[in-house]
Write a protein that binds this DNA or RNA. Structure first.
Length: 953
DNA sequence: GTGTGGCA
DNA sequence: TGCCACAC
């Protein structure tokens, strides 16, 4: 029955090992969100799926197997030790894909075959020999020319890379002989990739000619003396034995001992859940969608990525079993302990000391670290064990109706917990012990909270910063996301513990057991993440970025956030009411002009008024079918003399200033310090830039006169000055350096006006007496270049037709061909690696760089061009910031660094030290790239001193 | 190009 | 959620 079945149909044998290498080099280096490389795996899966589809369609397949090499050493090494000795070890990012490809094969319910000591080719040859005896057809799926010797007599090859069938004509074309003589040709010609020696001076062409003339290798060697060409004759005689050895190497062994009969290779349908689970786990979205639609699976139904959790082996107090119904349990064997007495606390501190590494997490009453009160601390010194130490819990707030409990109506008491100061006194030596590494997730927050309790955590590692350094641009770096990604575990959500929105309660009110489940799990997860992420720093060569930039910056930012900046509240209030009055006036005017009282703040209504009712020209409809009313459109209309759009622009400016700045800022003043304390997000921008939130002090207006009034509300303490120091043209300078543009670098060294120079180069006008509008255009082009420029973007910026913008760009590239070369280089690098690098080695991953959609790909390419420039500038100012506190202290200056605005630092200094501070700050900033990277352009810094930010700038 | 935030 | 506007 086996024979008949096999004979009736076709046996497909996939050369798995050969395919892996070819897919690896042919495809872009795709990675899973957790960093696992999967490019070859995806290629393999696509190939397999396509094969299954194609063969199903023609109904020809009956048996299917993937064959793999096993072990590097085979019987061929006994014949010739140098066989394949020239092969380099598999690339680092290919190695983990081997086992994934075996998993993939299983997931597709395809049989895989390997035999210790044999290459895949030999196994295939053995099956081919057996198939021939029973008259079955075989299709070998491979691009490996070594398998061509098997073709013919019911055997064909299918090249999956080229999607091409290889049969007799193709073999004849490749080797010049029929398949049964391919081995003879190869043994003469040798093969440099497999280190098969052959005979010197003989290639495939000559070998084929000789074999066709003499019949086979042995006949040729026997009659070698007859050969006319002296060199060829001598070599064939001298290297006859080498040719025979080569023949043994290239001839495939058809006698591999295989238990598998053909009946073991019958095709089977994959289990939908298993296959979809595998594809989902590896992020193969397109393939998953295809398989799902075929299986009729609902789009959301994902087999859980997390391994099934075992039952809790240790039912001690506070064990991890979450009280909720369906959320994933804690990492399977974790045990959490509630610490309520000093004895237990001492044991945990001793455990941390013994381990030398401890994950730490603090629970507080607020997300705002400057207002947060400490509620508890969790620790994990050993994987799977964590504790929660409640310190500031209060009795849970009464929930709704009180049940009559028979009499005791006294206030519920606070739960049992160690006295906060006593616990901190015990914890402090451990948290500050230089021999114990503390690990946190976004530890900047904990540092900021604990510094108000007199505790300074050091030394430390931060899993968020590790993740950011390793995977910026690939995914977010919050703990929940990292846990799901790296640990296949979904931690208890904060909102499930404390609620959310209006019903949110303070963590201090969460019952201890519930708080322990949540808090201890965070420490547990943090330690596990640390164990996953930290080793990657070295293997991925990112330790320097993390250790010299990200980690040391955190305490510097803590000091800046703690310092805050003083706001003149009165000035802000006055500004606010001034704006309010004028907004109302504009509104009246606008309604009068429109002849209708509509909501000026609604772009939808505005668009209808302008274009539908008033019938103005130049309207564009956006994607949602609504009229576009952005500033560009309104400015154009205003320039044509229409008054309504002009007033709307005025209205918008003030409305924005009022709502976003004057009003919001006042609510952000900390009542205890009287200052505004922004929070700098370290892991927000993929380029390495910081972001500022609550409030965002990196987008305080400066462009317009009205906006600048706001900056004047940022003031220095009495007797102090604000100092603003900003890098001049840092991104253009870095472009000149990175792209290595001689003329640009020279211009910066000579201190020329770079925009005027660009204008004169691109438009061919002399710098002397240049029209300011010409220089302005050049400036826009320079910015556009940094942003990766598109004709569309530049046209938008300059308000000129796209054609004209295109001409400008062409003219620019004509003058600076090196910049186009840089852009092409960078895109190419990113297409291949999926990331780009800054001057200091920071990696910025760019998603969608290989997207098939040209618009999306173009967007990613512009990001790839911009990231090394923006990111290098971010690195440089971070380096300056890290050095700044020490430099100030060494110079005996009392100045404090308060803010960073991408290329600008704001300081507050005693009036008498303002000049000295400005000079020192300038020097530190200008030298910030040194000594690690000597730039080929100078960095220059402009510093200003004033009583307020507007004045200092 | 990179962000945050307010509003409908 | 998308639009708009502010910063570098």
């Amino acid at each position: 029955m086996i024979a008949t079945d096999a004979a009736r149909h076709r046996i497909y044998l996939v050369d798995g090992s050969g395919y892996i290498f070819r897919a690896y080099y042919a495809l872009p280096p795709l990675t899973r969100p957790d960093g696992t490389p999967v490019g070859a795996v995806l290629g393999f899966c696509n190939m397999l799926q396509k094969l299954i589809d194609d063969t199903k369609v023609d109904g020809s397949v009956s048996h299917l197997a993937v064959v793999f090499d096993s072990a590097r050493k085979t019987f061929r090494n006994d014949i010739y030790p140098e066989y394949k000795a020239n092969r380099e070890a598999a690339p680092e990012d290919l190695v983990p894909q081997f086992s994934l490809i075996r998993d993939a094969t299983r997931a597709f319910s395809v049989h895989s075959i390997e035999r210790e000591g044999y290459e895949a080719d030999d196994i295939i040859a053995t099956f081919v020999a057996r198939a021939r005896t029973i008259g079955a057809e075989v299709v070998i799926v491979s691009s490996d020319k070594d398998l061509m010797q098997l073709v013919g007599d019911g055997v064909t090859m299918l090249d999956p890379m080229k999607n091409r069938i290889v049969d007799l004509p193709e073999v004849l074309e490749k080797f010049g002989v029929a398949p049964d003589r391919v081995v003879d040709v190869q043994s003469l010609a040798g093969d440099s990739t497999d280190n098969v020696p052959g005979v010197p001076g003989i290639g495939i062409k000559t070998a084929a000619q000789l074999i066709n003339e003499y019949g086979d290798l042995e006949s040729l060697l026997a009659r070698a003396a007859e050969i006319k060409q002296p060199k060829r004759r001598e070599n064939l005689i001298a290297f006859a034995e080498q040719a025979r050895i080569s023949r043994q190497l290239v001839a495939l062994a058809a006698d591999v001992p295989l238990e598998e009969g053909f009946d073991g290779l019958l095709v089977a349908d994959p289990d939908p859940a298993t296959l979809e689970g595998f594809l989902a786990e590896n992020g193969f979205k397109a393939l998953l969608a295809k398989v799902r639609s075929r299986n009729g699976s609902p789009a959301g139904a994902l087999p859980a990525a997390a391994p099934p959790a075992g039952s809790d082996p240790d039912p001690v107090a506070g064990a991890a079993a979450p009280s909720g119904g369906d959320e994933a349990p804690a990492p399977s064997d974790s045990v959490y302990e509630l610490v309520q007495d000093t004895g237990a606390l001492r044991r945990w501190i001793a455990a941390a000391s013994k381990a030398g590494v401890v994950a730490v997490d603090t629970e507080t009453t607020s997300l705002d670290a400057m207002r947060a009160e400490l509620v508890g601390v969790s620790l994990s010194a050993e994987t799977g064990r964590a504790c929660y130490i409640p310190l500031g819990h209060v009795a849970p707030a009464p929930t709704g109706e009180l049940a009559f409990d028979g009499g005791d109506s006294s206030m519920p008491e606070a739960p049992k917990q160690i006295d906060r100061d006593e616990a901190l006194a015990l914890l402090k030596p451990m948290l500050e012990d230089p021999a114990i590494l503390k690990v946190g997730q976004n530890l900047k927050y904990d540092l900021l909270v604990l510094r108000r309790y007199g505790v300074d955590i050091r030394p430390f590692d931060d899993t968020m910063l590790l993740s950011f350094t390793l995977d910026a641009g690939r995914h977010g770096h919050g703990m929940d996301e990292l846990s799901e990604l790296h640990l296949a575990h979904k931690p208890i959500a904060f909102k499930d513990v404390a609620g959310s929105g209006k019903a949110m309660k303070s963590f201090a009110e969460v019952p201890l057991e519930r708080a322990c489940d949540y808090a201890a799990e965070d420490a547990d997860v943090t330690l596990r993440l640390f164990q996953v992420l930290k080793p990657r720093l070295a293997t991925e060569h990112l330790a320097t970025v993390y250790e010299t930039i990200e980690r040391p910056l955190a305490p510097v930012l803590v000091a800046m956030e703690a310092a805050g900046i003083k706001i003149d509240s009165g000035q802000l209030t006055a500004l606010s009411s001034d704006f309010a009055g004028r907004i109302a006036e504009y509104e009246k005017e606008i309604h009068a002009l429109a002849g209708d009282a509509f909501n000026v703040g609604s772009p939808k209504q505005l668009g209808e008024i302008l274009f539908d009712r008033m019938g103005l020209e130049g309207g564009k409809k956006g994607r949602n079918g609504a009229w576009s009313t952005d500033a560009n459109v309104l400015e154009k209309l205003a320039a044509e003399g229409h008054e309504l759009p002009a007033r709307v622009l005025d209205w918008r400016q003030l409305a924005k200033l009022k709502s976003t700045y004057t009003d919001a800022l006042q609510n952000q003043i900390n009542p205890q310090t009287g200052r505004v304390h922004t929070s700098f997000a370290m892991a927000a921008a993929a380029t390495g830039r910081l972001a500022s939130t609550d409030p965002n002090l990196q987008n305080i207006p400066v462009r317009t006169a009205e906006g600048r009034k706001l900056r004047r509300a940022f003031i220095a303490e009495p007797g102090h000055k604000l100092i603003s120091a900003d890098y001049s043209q840092i991104e253009l300078r870095l472009l000149a350096h990175i792209a290595d543009i001689g003329s640009l670098k020279a211009a910066f060294r000579d201190g020329l006006d770079i925009h005027a120079m660009t204008a004169s180069q691109v438009f061919g006008v002399p710098i002397e007496g240049m029209d300011p509008s010409v220089r302005r255009s050049a400036k826009a082009i320079n910015f556009g270049i940094i942003y990766g420029i598109s004709a569309f973007g530049l046209a938008q910026q300059l308000g000129v037709p796209q054609r004209q913008a295109r001409d400008y760009i062409d003219a620019y590239f004509e003058k600076y061909p090196g910049i186009r070369a840089y852009m092409d280089r960078t895109k190419e690098f990113c297409h291949h690696h999926g990331y780009v690098e800054t001057v200091f080695g920071r990696r910025c991953h760019i998603g969608g760089i290989n997207d098939r959609n040209p618009a999306r790909r173009g967007f990613s390419e512009r990001a790839a061009i911009n990231a090394p420039i923006q990111g290098s500038a971010a690195d440089i100012i971070k380096r300056a910031m890290i050095r700044m506190p020490e430099a100030l202290a060494a110079a005996g200056l009392k100045a404090r660094m308060l803010l960073q605005v991408h290329d600008e630092l704001i300081f507050e200094a005693p009036e008498a030290e303002a000049e000295a501070t400005a000079a020192l700050v300038t020097s530190v900033m200008e030298k910030a790239a040194l000594p690690a990277r000597a730039l080929s352009v100078p960095l220059t810094v402009d510093a200003g001193i004033g009583d307020n930010w507007g004045e200092a700038h």
